[in-house]
Simulated scan of single mutants.
Amino acid sequence: MPRLDQLLSSLGYGSRREVADFVKSGRVRLGGEVVKKADTKVQAEDVTLDDEAMEAPHGLLALLHKPLGHVCTHSDGEGPTIYELLPPRWMARKPSVTSIGRLDKDTSGLILITDLGPLVHRYTSPKAEVEKIYEVTVDRELDPALVATFASGGVMLRGEDKPCLPAQLEITSPLTARLTLMEGRYHQVRRMFASQGWHVEKLHRSRFGDYTLGDLAPGEWRMLDMPEEV
C-alpha cells in the first residue's frame, strides 16, 4: 500500500509538504477517521480530502471535444493547448495526462485523455486497428469513384512506401464525406484526399473506437469508465 503523502502527491493534490499540511489541518480522512500522520499506509478507496473521494486513483480516462485552434502538445509557443481545457490537477498527476493520438490545430473532434501509458499504446499501436470516423469537407465536388479508390487499399501517400489500408468513404453531399479508417498515420485524412487532388477545408473526428462525442460541446470533457483490461 502507498503512503498517504505519496498517494495524494501522485494524484496531483499537492507536494508531500502540502499533503502534510492537509493532514495537520484535519482535512484528510481514512475510512471516515481523521488521519494523524502523512506517512500512513492507505488504500486509495478509503481516503477523502475535504470529504471528497480521490479522483481516478487507479488511472484516468476522459473524452474531450477538441475545438479548432487548439494543439495536442505540452509545449509552449504553438498556440492554446488542449491541456488548458482540462483540470489543472490532471497536469500535476504523476505521470501527467496526455492525449491518445493527436488532432492537428485545424481539426476538431473526439480525443481521449489518459495518464496510463499502456492505454496509449493499446489505442495507438500500428496493430491496434481502432476504427476512427472523420467528417470531411473538401474544396470541390467529390467524384463517386473515390469510394472505390479509398476502399482499394492502394492509396499511396507522398514520402511513404506502403499504401494505406482499405478505408470506407461515404459521400454525404457534393462537398462532404464521412471517412472510416483503421489506422492513424500523420495527417492521414488530409493526405489521402490530397493524393487524389482534393483539398480538405474542414475536418472533424466524430468517433474513436467505441467512443462518440454525443452532445458534448467543443472544449468540454467527460470522464470515461476504464476498460477492463489495460
Rank of each mutant, 00 (worst) to 15 (best):
V19F: 14
R158K: 13
V47D: 11
A53P: 06
G31D: 11
L213N: 00
L169P: 07
G184N: 10
L146C: 07
T48C: 04
S195W: 12
F150A: 09
G26N: 13
V138D: 02
P87T: 02
G12T: 07
Y134G: 00
T40P: 11
L110N: 00
W221P: 02
L68Q: 07
V35R: 15
V200T: 14
E160Q: 13
S206L: 07
K66A: 00
G31S: 11
T73N: 01
E33Q: 13
V200H: 12
V97C: 06
R191K: 05
S195E: 14
L85V: 06
L116C: 06
I113M: 06
D21T: 09
L60Q: 06
D21F: 11
W90H: 03
T180W: 09
F193E: 11
G184F: 11
R185A: 01
E141H: 15
V19W: 10
L7R: 15
M182P: 01
K36I: 13
I82G: 02
P174C: 05
A194D: 08
G154F: 08
G14Y: 13
E45F: 10
P118D: 08
S125N: 09
M182S: 13
I111H: 00
M192G: 09
K127T: 02
L213V: 03
M192A: 04
L61Q: 06
I113K: 14
T114M: 10
T172C: 09
R16K: 01
G154Y: 01
T137W: 02
S195A: 08
L203G: 14
L203K: 03
V23R: 12
K37W: 14
Q168L: 08
V28E: 08
R93S: 04
V138Y: 00
D139N: 09
M192D: 04
F193D: 02
K36C: 11
A38E: 11
K132C: 00
A20Q: 14
G101D: 03
V200Q: 09
I82F: 02
P166R: 11
L179V: 01
A20G: 14
T114I: 05
P166T: 05
